[in-house]
Amino acid sequence: MGSLFSPGWENRLREWLDGSSDFQGAARWFDGSVLLGMGDEILWLKIYDGRVIDHKPHPTPFGFTFALKASEESWRALLQEDRNEILSYTGSKKILVEGNLLEFMRLTKTVVALVDGMRALFREPKTGKDIR
């Protein structure tokens, strides 16, 4: 998903989520992992006790609790929206939800906060290699 963000965005996303009271509050009751997918590009986030405690740019043997997958076009469109439309995108299947759909529902606020963080990073000035 690097084409959407500046290099190092994965670490900055973790920092952003660490500073989000919405994310910390909602994700406090989650012990699992979320996979963000854009074609072959992946970001796996291990979440526990309200924080992202690990991340990998590839799948792990643990699998994932649920995944949000879409084309670059759909991710870019979502991040360019003037408000957080993640639930509209998942509802219309512009972004596909895979895995444990019950956990996805239970973690709505966590997902919204995660996308809030992605939206914030998408809007920050690009540095380094930037093909956007």
Partner: peptide
Amino acid sequence: DAGIPGFHEFTYYRTAALCGR
């Protein structure tokens, strides 16, 4: 309730997306 856990939260955020800009 177990079929859609967190439905209140889902409704809360989905409602914002249903409102006009």
